[in-house]
Nucleic acid binder design. Structure first.
Lengths: 115, 115
DNA sequence: ATCATATTTCGACAATCTTAGAATTAAGCC
DNA sequence: GGCTTAATTCTAAGATTGTCGAAATATGAT
């Protein structure tokens, strides 16, 4: 019974750690086929077990997917999930330029504007 | 000495809790002048002390600001921070819509399109 | 089958988070 | 001052998270 809020919260929580955010950045910028865990480890210079734990957190949240290729595991970003999360955040928490809610004064869309 | 990654991680972490995400949604959709803590409490139906703690977390992350008005405290969203965070997430973790995957459909960027 | 490599899982510990009742501060009013 | 309302801070407990060495698993090669 996890609604959209719970799901978004879980994904945001997964991103809410500097190491995991760094991992995701590397994975996102890496090849579409995925980045080997070992490469992430050597780049980020953290123990393999710690990295694995964080990767599992990201995978559990659905932000990354994993595929085996020989002895290595390649992690790749799930862009559709990331996009959906960003869109949700945008729509729901930045008002996305959407409906002004009940209230005397409601300036529309304070967020999207870059002025 | 917190870099951009650490700052984004802190903000994402603050959002990574269903109650806090719900709080922010209400605040965002509420009046620009801010929503009284008491109103949030009655709507979300959580103890005042718990709410206050979560509000402090959001405020510490810079996502909301607070101003006193008589005996009530009004919390309002800091849209510039929210916008910066969303944009960071979009740019850094969703590749900013670049590198369209060799997939079937590539939706138009869901967030603040810069095209 | 043995070995080497890549990575995860186990186990344990400290640190942080979440929750909420009780006590406290802050502001306005009589 | 005393009283009421609004909200925070204090305090404490239980739960979760973060870390990483050690052990285990998986794959491929000799």
């Amino acid at each position: 019974m996890t609604g959209p809020v719970e799901q978004a919260a879980e994904q945001l929580k997964a991103l809410g750690h500097p190491v995991r955010l760094s991992i995701l950045r590397r994975v996102v910028q890496g090849p579409l086929a995925g980045t080997p865990a070992g490469e992430l480890q050597s780049r980020l210079e953290i123990p393999a077990s710690t990295l694995s734990h964080h990767l599992a957190t990201l995978a559990d949240a659905g932000l990354v997917q994993v595929a085996r290729e020989g002895t290595t595991l390649r992690y790749r970003a799930d862009f559709s999930v990331l996009r959906a999360l960003t869109e949700y955040l945008w729509q729901d928490c930045c008002s996305g330029g959407a409906e002004p809610q009940s209230g005397p004064e409601s300036k529309p869309s304070p967020c999207c504007r870059r002025d």
